[in-house]
């Protein structure tokens, strides 16, 4: 047990963070170089103002047309994304680990809140899964990759939730939690989760094209 735990929280954690950070940076640089080479016309129209305008407008729930026409999805996806990022970042136990390892301390959220947020993430994942099964137009476009992405995200929250409540076998669960979390980090640059890295740019381009070329909104 100790050896396993030490391995997943030691070398494996370094590897996961390394893959996530370096992988994302490499993907961004590679994509930028590709864009320089072949999407010069798109780069020429990129504008800070229109990019930010579009991003901000899409970050407001029910502001964009797409949000308004898909209300349930809007609630689910906003709750999901906020909790997905905030819970692990501000979780007391995680901050403790930063503190122990690097002496880094910052604000935390109460465990009860984190517990609720985790349940929200799990619930949102179930909602997404339900859509993929129940809605014909979503089912038609769902691929194994999408289930894979969903599973990768669900796993650390589910195991984290079980570990926190020390249900089932704690020792196994905590190792599983660490491993699944690391899988998620490492998967970000190379799976559907790469939208975390690229979405800001695809949105920014669309904002720039609609703002600068069509003189229209894109939300």
């Amino acid at each position: 047990m100790n050896a396993a735990y030490q391995f997943v929280t030691g070398p494996l954690a370094w590897a996961a963070w390394g893959i996530f950070l370096l992988g994302s940076a490499w993907r961004l640089v590679a994509m930028y170089r590709l864009a320089r080479k072949k999407d010069a016309s798109a780069i020429a129209y990129m504008s800070w103002g229109y990019s930010l305008r579009s991003i901000v407008n899409w970050l407001i729930p029910f502001n964009a047309l797409g949000w308004r026409k898909n209300p349930a999805m809007t609630i689910a996806t906003f709750a999901f994304h906020v909790c997905l990022i905030a819970t692990p970042v501000f979780l007391v136990a995680h901050v403790m680990l930063w503190d122990q390892a690097f002496g880094v301390r910052y604000a935390t959220i109460p465990d009860a809140a984190a517990d609720g947020m985790t349940m929200l993430v799990i619930a949102a994942c179930l909602f997404f899964a339900g859509r993929r099964l129940a809605m014909p137009d979503v089912r038609a476009i769902t691929t194994p990759k999408d289930w894979f992405a969903l599973a990768i995200v669900l796993a650390p929250f589910l195991t984290g939730f079980l570990a926190y409540h020390q249900a089932i076998d704690y020792d196994t669960m905590i190792v599983l939690h660490v491993v699944t979390g690391e899988i998620m980090l490492a998967a970000i640059p190379f799976t559907r989760l790469s939208h975390m890295v690229f979405a800001v740019f695809t949105r920014a381009y669309m904002g720039s094209e609609f703002g600068g070329v069509r003189h229209a909104r894109d939300w």
Binding site: L34, A35, A42, N70, M73, V138, R192, A199, T202
Partner: peptide, 20 residues
């Protein structure tokens, strides 16, 4: 180029576009 690559990779198949 990069646009096609980014689009094909990051589409989460959420299906929200159906209403548009």
């Amino acid at each position: 180029g990069a646009r096609l690559k980014a689009y094909s990779e990051t589409c989460m198949r959420c299906g929200m576009c159906a209403k548009g």
